[in-house]
């Protein structure tokens, strides 16, 4: 890794400059993460110190993958991430394509579409929870008109739709900004050339614009999956609390429940380790992609 050609020389100053960041990282990141690794292969001792912690290899992990609740949580997380990602990216792409046609009104629309980024996931959850409230909400009232009886307190599907909508709503702004930037970097001449050759609007979009957007799409795909898997704790906790009947119990919410409510430290630690490996894989994918984008 490069430095400047010419550098300052001091044997202690660089360490002093790095110290705050490195100390915070070691105490609050690396130490707890290694604790999680450690706890995940031990069975806890009891509170009175009669039975010491015992080393049990991978029993915590085996127990997890034999546990139907955990397998259910994996499935729920998968559905939730895919749903959130597709919904928010799809809507954002549509908005970005439309806004990109505008000349004078582009900034005005952008302003209206970017601010949900600032809304905390928990607040986004509460807002949609209110709209979908079975007794006074406007959406159940409208759906009633179509003959659908909405109740996210008893129907797992309804609850899942609710959290997906809330999580996706907040993320639209982010995807929109990146898609718009991507669209604006596509040379207009390519599109004009295709138009002269007689390609229809839809054909131009699917054969020229969309392929050129693919690097950004792929990048957003990873970012959105990370968001849906790890940043949406607030959406779940402030609204459905994992229910009804585990229907929205995503992995990060389950780690929290098992650790703090059910006080099952070993299992929670094993879940943490699995989550960390997922983050590592996603981060590596993201960085591999960025390396490739440089050549693009």
């Amino acid at each position: 890794m490069q430095t400047k050609r010419m550098t300052f020389s001091s044997w202690w100053l660089p360490y002093a400059l790095l110290a705050p960041q490195v100390i915070v990282t070691v105490i609050f990141f690396i130490w707890p993460a290694s604790q999680a690794l450690f706890q995940s292969v031990y069975r806890q001792g009891d509170a009175f110190g009669i039975r010491p912690p015992t080393f049990i290899w991978f029993d915590n992990f085996k127990a997890l993958f034999a546990d139907s609740l955990y397998l259910n949580s994996l499935k729920v997380t998968f559905l939730f991430s895919v749903g959130t990602t597709l919904l928010s990216m799809g809507v954002a792409l549509l908005f970005a394509v439309m806004v990109n046609r505008m000349i004078r009104s582009r900034d005005a629309y952008t302003t209206f579409l970017v601010w949900p980024y600032a809304v905390a996931p928990a607040i986004a959850g509460v807002l949609w929870w209110f709209i979908f409230n079975p007794s006074i909400g406007i959406m159940p009232f409208v759906l009633q008109g179509f003959g659908y009886n909405w109740n996210h307190r008893s129907s797992g599907t309804d609850a899942m739709v609710l959290v997906i909508v809330a999580a996706a709503w907040k993320q639209i702004s982010y995807n929109f900004l990146f898609f718009l930037a991507g669209l604006q970097s596509i040379p207009q001449s390519l599109i004009e050339a295709a138009a002269i050759d007689g390609a229809s609007r839809m054909k131009r979009f699917w054969t020229i614009v969309f392929p050129l957007l693919s690097p950004i799409t792929f990048f957003l795909l990873v970012v959105n999956i990370v968001y849906a898997m790890f940043d949406t704790f607030g959406v779940i906790h402030a609204t459905t609390e994992g229910g009804p009947a585990q229907a929205t119990n995503i992995l990060v919410y389950k780690v929290y429940r098992d650790g703090f409510v059910n006080l099952n430290i070993g299992s929670s630690a094993a879940q943490s380790v699995i989550l960390m490996s997922i983050v590592v894989i996603l981060t590596v994918i993201q960085f591999r992609y960025i390396e490739r984008r440089v050549n693009y």
Binding site: D231, V255, V279
Partner: peptide, 10 residues
């Protein structure tokens, strides 16, 4: 690689 949500208990 270590967001707070994944190592919350420790």
């Amino acid at each position: 690689m270590l967001p707070v949500e994944v190592r919350i208990v420790p």
